[in-house]
Structures are given as C-alpha cells and as structure tokens.
C-alpha cells in the first residue's frame, strides 16, 4: 500500500516537473520576448535579483532554477494586459472553477451511478433500453449548444433563472475562500439568506449543463460494469449458496462494479474540465476557463503560461488521485503492479 502511494507521489512530481518545464519552454515558443512571457514585465521593469540577472544574461538553465523557486514563492509574474498579480488572480479564479466542477460532478454521480445500477440490474428490459437511448441522446449534445439552449429557454424565454455570472451585483461578499457558498455563509452580510439563494440560482444553469453530459457518461459506464459483474461466476455461485439477492447486491455486485467504474472516472476528468471551461465562457462564470480564453483573445501570454500550468496540474493531480485510490481499493490490481 505504501509502495503504491509512493509510486503515485513519484509519478505526480515527475509529471509536475515536466509541466513546469513545459511552461518555461512555452515562453520561448509564444510570440514576443520570452522574459516578457515569463514574468509579464520587460527586463528594465523587473526588480534587480539573481533571477533577473540570469534572464538578462540568457543563462536559461539557471533562470529555470530561479523560475521554479519563484513559482514556489507565489510570485508568478503579472498579467501583460491588466498588470494584475497572477497569483492573486488565480487564487480567486481557481476556486470558482473547482466549485462548478465539483457541483456538476456530484450531481452527475448522484444521478448517473444509481441509475446505472438500476439499468444494469434490469438489463435488456424496456427500462434499460429507454435509459440507454436517453443517455445516448444526452451524451451527443455539444456542450456549448446545450448551454445556449438552456439559457435561451430557461433564462430568456421563461425568465426563471439568471443568465450569467455567479452572484447578483447587489450583494457584496468579501473574498474569503473563493468558494461562493462558503464565503456567503461565513460573511456577516445583512441579507445572507437572500445572497445564498441568489448564488444557488446562478449556479443551477452552468451546473446542469455540465452535469447533463457527465450523467450520461457515468450512467453508461456504471451500467456496463454492473452487467459485466452480473455475468461473473461468483455471482451465480453466491446465488447457489442461497444468499438472498439484496445481500449479494450489497456485498458483491456493488463493490465490484464500483471498483470497475472508479478508474474509468479518472479518464473523464479532462473531458469534464474542458466542458466546465466552455460553460464558463458562455455563462460568464468567473472561473479560470473564462479567464484563459479571454487571455488568448487578448494575447496575454504570461497569463496563458501560468493558467495552463495551474489547470493541468490540478487535472493531473485529480486524475492520479482517482487512479491511486482505485489501486488502493482494488485488491486484484496489486498483482499487476
């Protein structure tokens, strides 16, 4: 078990190192001055330090060393367009993205996995076919179109929910953790209850758009896993031992099916994040996806460099975490390590 943990730690740090290296190298590939791309400032504007000196002398390997140091320090440079500190920017943006992703994932898991179990147990019956067809339809929606349709119908046509943003401008909630629900909860705003409701109303559309697609995928994955487990000999063997079906379901089917689903969820993380980023731009959710796409429109290379590093680090971390967990939970996987 410690071995598995160690291996994944290793893998994560090697990957992180590759990503940091990539972000450094990208500054040379992006148009314009590499120093400008790395720090957001020209050489003259930079405060004198060993890092500046290495950059000025074009001793790039030394500069890379200082670059890693500066990343660890939290001095990530400034945006070339707005001149804002990137570390501060991202620490407000990233929680918003994580928040949206988390809610969408939770909704999708809560709906998709139980439905998947149900369809798997009823496989090759009418309900199963119905749900399979529906999920096939659901998973074929282009995310941006779906999100637009929802906005057009629910916000514009029916006027039920706000169209964009995260919170109405009426409420001024101080930044605390970056997670809006938590921030509202800990703030001492006089209209806290109303603010909370408003935040929730803003959240529904983007969450549903992302969860819509993810639910379909989770449902199909789970259903397949359940059907596969049901065909195994040990289920028939447990039945011949006269164990009631609900016990077999709880102890054997559920466990093995979930173990099979878990590693497949890891593959979904990157798709999920792409979808979240697209939905952010459409609903103007103030997350890192919206910000990155604005940055590319404005050719803010310093921001793209750090945004790419942060998003890919988070995604790789989550992916590896899920893989590591599935390795730890699944006793049969150890033999292949």
């Amino acid at each position: 078990m410690l071995g598995t943990l160690g291996r994944y730690f290793n893998l994560f740090f090697i990957t992180l190192f590759i990503l940091v290296g990539l972000s450094f190298v990208l500054a040379f590939f992006f148009p314009g001055d590499p120093v400008f791309n790395l720090t957001g400032m020209s050489l003259e504007e930079l405060p004198t330090s060993a890092y500046t000196k290495a950059l000025a002398d074009e001793r790039w390997f030394v500069a890379f060393w200082y670059y890693v140091q500066s990343l660890l320090d939290g001095s990530w440079g400034i945006s070339t367009i707005t001149g804002l500190d990137l570390f501060a920017e991202i620490s407000t943006l990233l929680p918003a993205t994580i928040e949206l992703t988390a809610y969408a994932t939770i909704v999708a898991l809560l709906v998709g996995i139980p439905l998947g179990f149900w369809c798997g147990l009823k496989h090759h019956r009418k309900t199963d076919y119905a749900f399979m067809s529906i999920s096939m339809l659901m998973s074929s929606f282009p995310i941006f179109w779906l999100s637009l349709l929802l906005i057009l119908v629910v916000s514009l046509q029916l006027g039920w929910l706000p169209m964009s943003g995260r919170l109405s401008l009426l409420y001024d909630i101080p930044h605390y953790s970056g997670f809006i629900l938590l921030d509202i909860y800990v703030s001492d705003h006089p209209y806290r209850q109303e603010a909370l409701m408003d935040a929730l109303r803003h959240m529904i559309l983007p969450t549903l758009s992302v969860a819509f697609l993810a639910t379909a995928v989770f449902l199909r994955t789970t259903r397949r896993a359940v059907v596969d487990v049901l065909e195994q000999d040990y289920i028939a063997a447990a039945q011949t031992r006269g164990i009631p079906f609900w016990k077999i379901f709880l102890r054997h089917i559920m466990r093995n099916a979930l173990l099979a689903v878990l590693p497949l969820l890891a593959v979904q993380v990157s798709t999920l994040v792409t979808n979240v980023m697209i939905v952010e731009t459409i609903t103007e959710w103030p997350g890192i996806g919206d910000w990155l796409i604005q940055a590319i429109y404005e050719r803010d290379y310093s921001a793209i460099r750090i945004g790419m590093l942060v998003v890919s680090t988070v995604v790789v971390f989550v992916t590896l975490l899920i893989e590591c967990l599935s390795k730890l939970f699944d006793p049969t996987q150890e033999q292949f390590s």
Binding site: D233, A237, H252, P331, T332
Partner: peptide, 11 residues
C-alpha cells in the same frame, strides 16, 4: 473454476 467462483474483491 474456484478462482472465478469466489469474489475477487472480498477477503
């Protein structure tokens, strides 16, 4: 096949 007739994920 005793290997297949026992649940692989339960002790």
């Amino acid at each position: 096949d005793p290997q297949a007739a026992l649940d692989p994920s339960v002790k």
